[in-house]
Design a protein around this nucleic acid. Sequence first.
RNA 1: GUCCCAGUAGCUCAGCAGGAUAGAGCAACAGCCUUCUAAGCUGUGGGUCGGGAGUUCGAAUCUCUCCUGGGACGCCA
Length: 560
Amino acid sequence: MDFKKEFISELEKTIDGVISYDNLVKMIEKPKHDNLGDLAFPCFELAKHYRKSPIIIAEEIVQEMDVSTFERVESVGGYVNVFLNKEKVSQEVLTNILNEKNQYGYSGIAEGKTMTIDYSSPNIAKPFSMGHLRSTVIGNSLALIAEKQGYRVIRINHLGDWGTQFGKLIVAYQKWGNEKKVKESPISELLALYIKFHEEAEKDSTLNDQGREAFKRLENGEREAIQLWRWFRDESLKEFNKIYELLGIRFDSYHGEAFYNDKMDRVVDILAEKNLLIESEGATVVKLEGYPPCLIKKRDGTTLYATRDLAAAIYRQENYHFDQSLYVVGHEQSLHFKQLFAVLKKMDCDWQEGMAHIPFGMILKDGKKMSTRKGKIVLLEEVIQEAVQLAVKNIEGKNPNLLEKEEIAKQVGIGAIIFHDLKNYRLNDIEFSLEDMLTFEGETGPYVQYTHARATSLLRKGEFQPDSSTVVKLKDEEAWPVIKLLNQFPDSIAKALAEYDPSQIAKLLLELSKAFNKYYATVKILTDDQKQQRLTLVYTVKIVLKEGLRLLGMKAPTEM
RNA sequence: GUCCCAGUAGCUCAGCAGGAUAGAGCAACAGCCUUCUAAGCUGUGGGUCGGGAGUUCGAAUCUCUCCUGGGACGCCA
C-alpha cells in the first residue's frame, strides 16, 4: 500500500502547485525517529519560494491541510509530520497479505520479459571455493527476485571448462598423473597436479609453452586430449552437483566455454566483416575507445576468454531473446565486461544495452586474494560440514526432541552461510572468517529462521485459521513497527532488483524479525481477548519471513 | 603510471537520487525463563562518518584533491 499518495494529495491542495507531484514523491521521507511520525515533508524548498521561514510554512500547511484521514499531523522544526491512521493501515496491509499469501510482493512490471543470469560458473578441475559461493548465492537470489517481478529467467552455469589451463592440466597429468588416484578423489588430485604444474613452471618456463600447445591440440579436437578433458569435466561436474543439491540450486543450462568452441569462427568472421580486427604484436585485437584493446586471438591463433564470451552473448540473444542479461562475476573482471560490451556495441548489437555485469567483492584471506594456483583456498564443502555440525549441536542443546534433526540442521547451517553472504552490500570485500560465518545469534540467517519458527509455533498452538474478513484492531503499540515493515516488503523487493542487491531483502527481514521479537517479548499473544487479531499479525509475519527467505535461497523451518 | 572499488563505534556493517539528535549486530558490562521456543528480550558505555577544500539554508551522502587498503591493466579466466 502506498500511503504516501494520500499524504501528497492532501499536501498538494495547500501549496498551489509550487512543487510537482513527481517531486513531492521524491521529497516525502521517513522521519528518523519513530516518535516523529510515519511520513514527513521538509519545507526548506518552499522557504525559497515563499521567502518565509520553513518553520512557519510547516505550521501553515498543517493549519490548511485536511487531516481527517490521518491520526494526526504536526509541524516540527520545518517539517510536516504525519502519523498514519494505525487501524486503517493495519487493516489494509494485513488483509492484503492474507489475500495474496506468498504472492505478496509480486509486481508484474517485468511480465513478458526474459532475463538470462550467468552465475556460479566454477572452473572444472578446481575445487568449489568460497569465491564461487558468492556468485552462486547472489545469482540464485537475483534469479528468484527477478521471477518475483515477472521475468522469465534463464539460469546459466557458464562452466570454466575451456582454456589454456586445460592444456596445462593435460601436460601435468601426462607427466605426473596417476589414473587410480584421480578416480579416487578427482578434484583434489587434479588440483594437486595444477599446483605442481605452476611450481615446476617457475623452474622450467618451457612448461608454459607445452601447456599452450596442449590446449591447441584440444581446440583442434585431438582425440587423446579430448578424452582427458571430458573425463576431468565429468568428474568435476559430479562434485559440483553435490554442492548445488545442498544449496538447493538448479540451472537451465550448463553450457560452459567449451560449448562455444565451434561458434567462435563466426564471431571472428563478423568482426572481420565489420573491419574491426587489427593485427597487433602478432595477436588479433579489436581497438576500443577509452579502454585497452580487446584480444580476440592469440599469436598462435587460439582464442581467448573474450572471444568465447562474445560467442556466448550472441548465442544467448539468438536463443533466448533476452531483454536483460546479467553476469554475476567478481569485481576483478570489471574491465573485461566493459570491453565485452564495447565490442558488441561496435558490432551494432543494440541488444547489448540490456547486458550488465553484476560485480561483487572478493573473499580475502589475511587481507589478500585467495589463489588457486598456490593452493591458498578454502573449500566450501568443509565450511558447510562445520556449519551443519554446529547446528546439530545447537538443536541437541536447545530442542532435543525435535524430529528430523539432520534435515533442519542442514537448513539452518546452510542458511547461516547464505545469509552471511547476502546480508551485506555485494561489492564489499569479505575477510574470510569461519567464526563470523558460523554465528547463529544477532543479525544472522538462523535469527530470521528462528523468528519464523517461533511464529509458526504460535499459530500451531493457537490453532489459527486465517480469515480475510478478520477485523484487525490491534491496540498494541508494538504491533505498529511490525506492520510498517510488512508494508515495506514489496518496496524492498523492487529495490533489490533495481539495484541487483539481495541485501535489501535480507535487511528488511532482519528489521522485521527484530520488531516481531520485540512484539513477542512484550505482548502476550495466546490470550482470549485479541487472539484472532494478534495471530493474524503473526500469520502475516510468517508469510513474509518465509517468502523473503525463499527469495534469498533459504529454507524456513517450522521448528528448530 | 592509468583505471575500477572501498574507507562510518574496538570488530562486522546499515544509512548515501543532500535534510531533524549518525544507527544495528558482535564483543564488554548489568538485568529478564513457575507463562506463547532465551538461536530471544531490556539496559549501559563506546563516534574528528580517512584528511582537507568546495557547492548548499543544510553534506556521512554531491564535486575536487590528497592519504590508506584492495583489485584490474594483450596473448590466464
